[in-house]
Design a protein around this nucleic acid. Structure first.
Lengths: 340, 340
DNA sequence: CCGATCATGCGAACCGGTTCGAAGCATAAC
DNA sequence: GTTATGCTTCGAACCGGTTCGCATGATCGG
């Protein structure tokens, strides 16, 4: 393998000169610079990443800590990964993907070994074990998902309160007074998915203020139980005219259930979901929904992280907690409730 | 940050001794070894990955080259990533994930810079641009997907010929004589997805040998066109009693279509798909299917790759092309055709 | 004509590990 | 008593970059 010494020798200069010629960090005569660049190209020189990382204490790698929980609905996860990966590459960074079940150990290893210059955490829970480890690390971190304690990290999340308000308001404004909210499975909440509560509480307050009733329920975590649960729910509440779905798996299962019940949307039932547009297209979901913008959240997290890594913002600059405003994408699945 | 020099000093030994005490690559007295280990733990020593990579020419990282094509059905991809990531971690390797649109450039960069010790390629096409680059690299590579030319790489794939045979045989044995095969979109084939042909040809031969007709069609690449295409297909071929689906997106769309047509399975129509069991569970797909085993393929690829990286098998040892035998998972979606 | 200034390139040190050869010392063998 | 042997440990070199201080020679101003 050709190293910078080979390039320097072939160009007839010192190693340091070759380094400067290639990096441009110091002035080098045009003649030498061009010669070094040409030789480097001819020899097919590529700097050794480990050596460079050692010398500069920059790995040009960002750690991405995802958790592939066995009972989680996977398809949405890939969208976050894509957003993060593509943005990182645009900014010159590679992604080291960890899906270790023990997120804290993985995080400690990646940061302490200096394999990564910063870390993006997905799936952040209310009380996330990984946060103390991250705060103790020398590298900055950005989160997708809002924890209870945001000190020392930059946080990006959908504004779930506003989402809950928007969903409830949209339906009550149309005249609905009996609403059902299908949430994430209970164990997701127990694991610290506080966003479920945030959306739910805001939706309930809004509904109450509008004189409507809203009943929140948890869905099971996997098919085909989800379908059965949806049937049971609709059986038990024939009075309901509006459905809020804060659960991708349930949204994906809903079309079949509605078909089986011969329910038309929005004629018999108005439905509002909360998932990304790409998700909607992939599964042909015909429901209006709050856009969850996973690619955008991933992009924002990486951008801010890179700004910190590259010291464009001071270490002690205040950390941000930024909420993406929820946008309702109208797919025509809502209308005034049917008259009795 | 604490380095091995700090550990050595605190333990009162030379750096080299500390290194040996921690790695075990040379004998060290029990007393010194225990002392060094204790001190390392107390100081929270973690070796610097860059420095170690530089010294050992081992990064303990595997490159994973996935391509997130905009028109590809994403959910299946995550299962490959999971299989690869988990297996790598079990073997002590981390995963560097590249989703660069320009796969060849990314591959060249990762290998030439020695960021990775080996590479797993997903989505391998018949004539894959990345293969020449991989062969020119100093690191070994393992593929998931069968290219036209397998020299110099280890290859793992589902046995799509056997899969096609098994699907056709299963239905013809039940008495079906009019079959439809829903394949991947045309552009997937054009891009080099030869597995589509492999399955299709084997299925057609088998059908012909059994005196059955099999009509292959391409599905569109996204919803809701897929649903419409399935309707059109069934409209045009009322005589068909058996459906083979070599397309995850189409399989996911099928339940809705069948509902809309009031077709019962397997009463009116027998269906065999080709997707993983996890996929079936996630989307509650009620169709018997050939298990595509993405996690297993990912695992096999990483295992073989690590064997090569660690020189457990010689560099010049013959490369393997290994096919996973397709297994038909019976979900009760097939029966003899309805009598006229 | 001479000292100050500037542009340019070189050499050496350093980042933090690993690894090889050899030294020191105690014990065993003869 | 001396040499051989084995067990430990140490020092130095090396992996391949980057970066700092300095030397060299040319240019410029007075």
């Amino acid at each position: 393998m050709v190293n910078i010494g080979d390039v320097a020798r072939a160009a007839g200069v010192a190693r340091s000169t070759a380094s400067y010629a290639l990096s441009g960090k110091r002035a080098v005569s045009d003649e030498v610079r061009l010669r070094v660049q040409r030789v480097a190209l001819e020899l097919g020189y590529t700097p050794n990443a480990g050596a460079r990382a050692l010398a500069t204490s920059r790995a040009m790698v960002i750690g991405l800590l995802a958790q592939f929980l066995p009972d989680e609905f996977a398809p949405a996860m890939l969208q976050y990964i894509q957003g993060v990966t593509n943005t990182a590459r645009d900014l010159g960074y590679d992604i080291l993907l960890s899906s270790d079940a023990d997120g804290t150990a993985a995080l400690k290893r990646l940061t302490d070994s200096r394999m990564v210059d910063g870390v993006v955490l997905l799936n952040v829970a209310e009380h996330d074990d990984r946060l103390p480890v991250l705060r103790a690390a020398a590298q900055p971190g950005a989160l997708v998902g809002l924890p209870g304690d945001c000190t020392g990290v930059d946080v990006f999340d959908l504004d779930f309160e506003e989402a809950g308000r928007a969903m409830a308001e949209h339906l009550t404004a149309l005249g609905h007074r009996e609403l059902l909210l299908v949430s994430q499975p209970e164990h997701v909440v127990e694991r610290g998915g506080a966003y479920v509560w945030r959306l739910q509480n805001a939706a309930m307050e809004t509904a109450a203020a509008r004189g409507a009733r809203l009943l929140p329920v948890h869905a099971p975590s996997s098919q085909p139980e989800i379908g059965r649960a949806l049937h049971a729910l609709l059986d038990a509440h024939p009075e309901a005219t509006g459905l809020l779905v804060n659960n991708e798996a349930a949204a994906a299962a809903l079309p079949t259930v509605l078909h089986e019940r011969r329910l038309s949307v929005p004629g018999d039932l108005s439905v509002v979901g909360r998932y990304s547009d790409e998700f909607a297209r992939t599964f042909s979901l015909p429901f209006s929904s709050i856009e969850s913008a996973p690619d955008r959240l991933g992009r924002m997290a990486v951008r801010q992280l890179v700004r910190r890594i590259e010291k464009e913002i001071a270490d002690d600059a205040p950390h941000v907690v930024r909420f993406v405003a929820p946008e309702l994408v109208d797919r025509g699945s809502t209308a005034p409730p049917p008259s009795r």
